[in-house]
Simulated scan of single mutants.
Amino acid sequence: MPLWKIYHPEDAFDESDKRALSERITALYNRLPRFYVGVIFQPVADHSFYVGGEPRRDFVRIWIDHIARTLPDADMRTRWIALCDEALAPFIKERGFSWEYHIDETSHELWSIEGFRPPLAGTADEARWIQENRPSPVLPR
Rank of each mutant, 00 (worst) to 15 (best):
T26Y: 10
A27H: 12
S48P: 05
S16A: 15
R19D: 13
G38M: 03
Y7E: 03
L21R: 01
V44D: 04
H8L: 07
E15V: 03
A45N: 15
L3N: 13
Y7G: 03
W4L: 06
H47T: 13
P43R: 03
A45R: 15
I40E: 10
F41R: 04
P43Q: 06
D46L: 12
F13N: 09
Y50I: 04
I25G: 14
V37I: 05
F49D: 06
N30K: 11
S16Y: 14
I6A: 09
V51I: 14
R31C: 11
Y36A: 10
H47L: 13
L28I: 02
K5W: 00
H47W: 14
Y7W: 01
V39G: 06
N30W: 10
F49Y: 09
R31P: 08
D17R: 14
D46G: 14
A27Q: 12
I25W: 03
V37W: 03
V39E: 06
Y50L: 09
E15C: 02
A27I: 05
P33L: 00
F49S: 08
K18I: 06
F13W: 02
P43F: 08
E10I: 15
V39H: 05
I6E: 11
S22F: 00
Y50S: 04
F13C: 07
A45V: 08
Y36I: 05
F41V: 12
E23W: 11
D46R: 14
R19G: 10
H8R: 02
K5A: 06
V39Y: 02
Y50G: 06
K5N: 04
Y7T: 02
E23Q: 13
R19A: 12
